[in-house]
């Protein structure tokens, strides 16, 4: 328990100033640019990178040449010499800081709502051969979001106009125009207005492909913003987990400066490089999506598995080395 406490406290010592910096960046960024999404990413990144680097710097077995590494390796039980405990300490510290950030950032994001992906009853293509597509509409939806893929027309392109009908009744707002690929069109609906939505092409020649994420129905109510924000930020613990798992795996070969560089690069890859679910989670949160209804579960499981696999590989390597 003392290892966990010391590791957690040490990570907090690094992560709390980083969180303060993150809050400042968030506040100044939103105030000066008027947009929140990029600043939310930066804010989540800072405490995670601080916790990660502090764990590597604090716990000697993460590097071959750290002060007293050999003494700690001899004294600690288990093949990974306390590195999982130090990782857990860093995760707890990062979780505390991310929760703080979530509290601060929750007023900046829209209320999270479930976004249901609607699937067409037919082949999801509106072109000369098919002018109408219909979808089953969930109850309690208050908005329809269209974001179709635009294909090449046979003649000179002409924006496609769509008339939307709920249970056969056309919307009073009139048709919507689609002229760009993945152009987002938001259509407000009355709550509980029907069970079927139909899209009818009434003019234009751009063929529209409605793939899995092209037609979304947005629920009218959802959980509180804080919960949505906290969930999105908590996904940022996965890059930390993967990073420290990688550091464990490489700890037999790396000196401390290189171990810190590797940890930093792993985190940058998972944030700027968008490897893993962390950036997508914050982006979805900033767009008002409720994460539990989004297909982000499998990327999260993949990240979790990558960290576990790295840890198991590290254990196997250590055991082999001991033999």
């Amino acid at each position: 328990m003392r290892t966990l406490w010391f590791a957690c406290r040490q990570s907090l010592l690094w992560a709390l100033p980083a969180t303060a910096l993150a809050l400042a960046v968030l506040w100044i960024g939103v105030a000066t640019t008027g947009t929140g999404t990029p600043w939310l990413h930066v804010a989540a990144f800072l405490p995670v990178v601080a916790s990660s680097l502090s764990a590597v710097a604090f716990w000697p077995p993460f590097a071959t040449d750290a002060r007293g590494a050999e003494l700690v390796r001899r004294t600690t039980k288990g093949p990974l010499h306390g590195m999982p405990t130090a990782t857990l300490g860093a995760l707890l510290a990062a979780a505390a800081c991310l929760l703080l950030l979530a509290v601060a950032a929750s007023p900046l994001v829209p209320e999270p709502r479930a976004h249901h992906r609607l699937r067409a009853h037919e082949r999801p293509l509106l072109d000369d051969g098919r002018i109408e597509l219909s979808f089953a509409l969930p109850e309690d939806c208050v908005e329809l979001q269209l974001r179709p893929v635009v294909l090449m027309p046979r003649a000179a392109p002409e924006a496609t106009s769509l008339q939307i009908a709920i249970d056969g009744k056309e919307l009073a707002a009139g048709p919507v125009m689609i002229f760009g690929d993945r152009q987002l069109v938001r259509v407000p609906l009355e709550r509980g207005s029907g069970t079927t939505v139909a899209l009818r092409r009434i003019s234009g020649n751009l063929p529209l492909w409605f793939d899995a994420a092209a037609v979304l129905a947005v629920d009218g109510s959802g959980p509180p913003r804080l919960l949505g924000c906290a969930l999105a930020f908590s996904v940022w613990l996965l890059p930390l987990w993967v990073t420290l798992g990688t550091a464990m795996l490489l700890s037999r070969w790396l000196r401390q400066p290189m171990a810190l560089v590797v940890a930093g690069v792993a985190l940058v890859l998972q944030s700027l490089g968008q490897v893993g679910p962390a950036t997508a989670a914050v982006t979805l949160c900033a767009r008002g999506h409720w994460l539990l209804t989004e297909p982000i579960f499998w990327p999260c499981i993949t990240s979790l598995g990558a960290g576990v696999a790295a840890m198991i590989a590290a254990m196997a390597l250590r055991a082999e080395h001991r033999r």
């Binding site: 003392r2 290892t3 010391f6 040490q10 710097a57 002060r67 007293g68 050999e70 003494l71 700690v72």
Partner: peptide, 19 residues
Amino acid sequence: PDGPPPLAMLNGREVLQWF
């Protein structure tokens, strides 16, 4: 060992408590 103690970010009491 002939070298510095580990966990040098902790204070002396904590290092001994950890041991």
